[in-house]
C-alpha cells in the first residue's frame, strides 16, 4: 500500500534520514518508534507531503506520490496538540474536516454522527472544546481526522501530552477503533510500550537510520543489536566473545552455547 525507497533527508547538510526503506501493507498499523531526534517525525512529514526528501521515493497504492501536494494525497494527519478550534463545538470540529468534500448537509451530519459513535462521544456533539478533558479532545481530533475517510492515517505522538494512566487507557481504546476503521496507519511515538500495544509492525529508528523493521514480538525476542535491546529497557546485556563455533564466553563467566544463529539454546553456568 505504502512503500518508501531509499529516503534521504538533510537539514543544512546535517543528515537526518539515511536510506530509509520499508513497505506498509493495506490496513496495517506501523509504528515509527525511536528516541527524540531520530527522524521519525521528519519521515512522517515526508510521507504526508509536508517535506520533500532529498532523494528516494514514496509510493502509495503503486503510484509515486513525491510530487503530489499534501492536500491532494488524501491522507489524514493528527498532531500531538490536536489543533482543535476552540470557537467550534465538537460536531463542528469534526465536520470541519469534511469541508472540502462535496457532501450534502444531511450526509455530512450523518458522517459526523458516525464518527462520534466510533470514538464514543455521541452525547458530546454540542460541547465546547474547553469543556473537554485531554482524553476527550484526543478522541475528537481522531474523529475529525478520520471523518474524510483518509487513505492513510498518520498520528504524530497523539498520546504524548497525556498523563500516564490516561495514555494507557486511550491506547487500549485506539486499538479497536483502528481495527474497526481498517485504515492503513503510521503512528509516531517514542514510547516502546505504546508502539508494541498499537502496531502490527514497528519501524525502529535511531539517528536517522532504520535499525529494525518487524512485528513487536520479533523486536522484543530477536533484537538486531544491543542498542535495540537497551532501547526496550532490557538491561542485561553482556559483552561476549566467540570462543569456538557455537559458544560465547561472557565477561562474567557464563559460557553460552548457541545451536542456531543469534539464538542461545543451551547455557551452562561455569563460574570463573
Amino acid at each position: 500500500m505504502l512503500s518508501l525507497a531509499a529516503i534521504r533527508k538533510s537539514y543544512d547538510s546535517a543528515p537526518v534520514l539515511h536510506d530509509i526503506s520499508f513497505a506498509v501493507d493495506a490496513g496495517e498499523t506501523v509504528a515509527l518508534l525511536g528516541p527524540s531526534g531520530c527522524g521519525k517525525t521528519t519521515l512522517l512529514r515526508i510521507v504526508a507531503g509536508l517535506e520533500r526528501a532529498d532523494s528516494g521515493s514514496v509510493r502509495f497504492a503503486g503510484e509515486p506520490i513525491d510530487t503530489v501536494p499534501a492536500h491532494q494525497r488524501g491522507f489524514g494527519m493528527m498532531f500531538q496538540e490536536y489543533a482543535l478550534f476552540p470557537h467550534l463545538n465538537v460536531a463542528d470540529n469534526i465536520a470541519y474536516g469534511l469541508q472540502t468534500h462535496t457532501m450534502s448537509p444531511a450526509d455530512r451530519n450523518a458522517r459526523v454522527n458516525e464518527m462520534l459513535a466510533l470514538v464514543g462521544l455521541s452525547t458530546y456533539r454540542t460541547r465546547r472544546v474547553y469543556q473537554l478533558s485531554g482524553g476527550e479532545r484526543q478522541r475528537v481530533a481522531l474523529a475529525r481526522t478520520l471523518a474524510p475517510a483518509p487513505r492513510l492515517l498518520m498520528l504524530d505522538e497523539p498520546l504524548a501530552a497525556l498523563d500516564r494512566s490516561l495514555r494507557k487507557r486511550l491506547q487500549d481504546e485506539l486499538v479497536p477503533i483502528l481495527q474497526r476503521v481498517g485504515v492503513t496507519t503510521l503512528y509516531v511515538t517514542h514510547d516502546q510500550e505504546e508502539a508494541f500495544a498499537l502496531a502490527d509492525r514497528v519501524a525502529l529508528l535511531n539517528a536517522g537510520e532504520l535499525i529494525q523493521y518487524a512485528c513487536p514480538e520479533e523486536v522484543y525476542r530477536r533484537p538486531v543489536s544491543a542498542w535495540v535491546a537497551r532501547f526496550q529497557g532490557l538491561k542485561n546485556v553482556l559483552d561476549g566473545e566467540l570462543q569456538e563455533v557455537g559458544t560465547v564466553q561472557t565477561a562474567i563467566g557464563w559460557c553460552i552455547t548457541i545451536v542456531q544463529e543469534h539464538r542461545a539454546q543451551n547455557a551452562d553456568h561455569r563460574a570463573q
Binding site: A226, N236, V237, L238, D239, L242, T250, I256, H269
Partner: peptide, 24 residues
C-alpha cells in the same frame, strides 16, 4: 558480540541448597 539475558531467565535456589548449581 553481546549476550542478552531476559528478565525472566533466572532460576534461583537457596545458597548451598540441595542440587544448587550455577553462580553465587
Amino acid at each position: 558480540m553481546s549476550v542478552l539475558i531476559y528478565p525472566e531467565a533466572a532460576l534461583l535456589l537457596p545458597e548451598g541448597g540441595a542440587g544448587a548449581r550455577g553462580m553465587l
